[in-house]
Simulated assay, not measured.
Amino acid sequence: MFNFHYRLERNAMGLVLAIVVVASIGGLIEIAPLFTIDETVEDAPDMRVYTPLELAGRNIYIREGCYACHSQMIRTLRDEVERYGPYSLAVESKYDHPMLWGSKRTGPDIARLGGKYSNEWHVAHLYNPRDLVPESKMPAYRWLMRNSLKIGDLGEHLAAMRAVGVPYTDEMIANATADAYGQANPDSTQAAGVTARYGEATNVSLFDGKPETLTEMDAIVAYLQILGRLTDVAHKTEQASVE
């Protein structure tokens, strides 16, 4: 067997062909499950897309490297489910480009963070984590409160997401800037348009506590508050398995 390997290494064409064969076998094993993707990915009729403000917050989350310390995928292990909630389902990430499942947890998994804490808690935590969690290693993100959110190009962001399969409508794209402002200003005339386009359950709130300006803090808190709440299918699946 070893002599065959040595002979193969001395034969350039034979070695190339062997590499191609082995790589093809590995590739086939990885690709084959995709042919049954329609049967393996759960159906979620109530799944909704990110609003422009939430999408902007997700972009800031990526920009600041938050995914390097927080995963967004709860495994099926018992201790994970008991700590974080129902395990993650594939359908919950169908509109995530790129996906942020992650594997490193310097901080806790946040796949089901939405609604767990108040807006005020998130603002205080991002401004100085140690005010709420003294042992936290997370850096402070005070500039999010100072930085005005860039919203003029949000329509282009939604159009780019539609190009990769996210079902944004022409109306959503055309009103992206107004909807971003309206979601963070419940008393504004634009707020009604957000719920009309994205559903009554959309979280329209004064995220950073300051109605006079739209900040990056508004966006990232809006994003954190929707994590695990784009669909309720995981909780329904868990309930069905218990019954």
Score class of each variant (00 low, 15 high):
Leu144Lys: 04
Ala174Asn: 04
Glu135Trp: 07
Gly228Glu: 09
Thr202Pro: 05
Arg162Cys: 07
Gly209Thr: 11
Lys236His: 15
Ala163Leu: 13
Met172Trp: 05
Val194Arg: 07
Asp153Asn: 08
Ala163Met: 10
Ala174His: 06
Ser148Pro: 12
Lys137Ala: 14
Tyr127Ala: 12
Lys236Phe: 14
Tyr168Asn: 06
Leu224Glu: 09
Arg130Leu: 00
Gln183Pro: 03
Met161Ala: 13
Leu144Asn: 01
Leu126Asn: 00
Gln225Tyr: 06
Gly152Ala: 03
Ala178His: 03
Ala174Thr: 05
Leu227Ile: 07
Phe207Pro: 05
Leu230Glu: 14
Gly193Lys: 14
Pro167Asp: 03
Leu149Trp: 08
Val133Tyr: 03
Gly155Ala: 02
Leu144Met: 11
Tyr181Pro: 04
Ala159Glu: 10
Gly209Ile: 12
Ser205Leu: 10
Ile151Val: 13
Gly193Ala: 12
Thr195Cys: 01
Leu149Phe: 05
Tyr198Asn: 02
Leu206Ser: 12
Ile220Lys: 07
Arg229Asn: 13
His235Pro: 07
Pro134Asp: 00
Pro129Ala: 07
Asn147Ala: 13
Asp179Cys: 09
Arg130Lys: 09
Ala140Phe: 00
Ala196Cys: 01
Leu149Ser: 05
Leu214Ile: 06
Glu200Cys: 03
Tyr181Lys: 12
Asp208Arg: 11
Pro139Val: 05
Thr177Gln: 11
Val233Glu: 11
Ala222His: 06
Thr237Tyr: 15
Ala159Lys: 08
Ala192Ser: 13
Lys210Glu: 15
Arg130Gln: 06
Thr231Tyr: 10
Val204Pro: 05
Ile173Leu: 04
Val233Ala: 10
Ala201Pro: 04
Leu158Tyr: 03
Asp170His: 09
Gly209His: 10
Ala178Tyr: 05
Ala159Met: 08
Arg229Asp: 10
Ala191Phe: 03
Asp208Lys: 10
Val194Ser: 08
Leu132Glu: 09
Trp143Tyr: 14
Arg162Asn: 11
Ala159Ser: 10
Thr213Leu: 15
Asn128Ser: 08
Asn175Val: 04
Leu224Asp: 03
Pro139Met: 06
Val204Tyr: 02
Ser188Leu: 04
Ala192Arg: 14
Glu171Lys: 11
Ser205Lys: 09
Asp153Met: 03
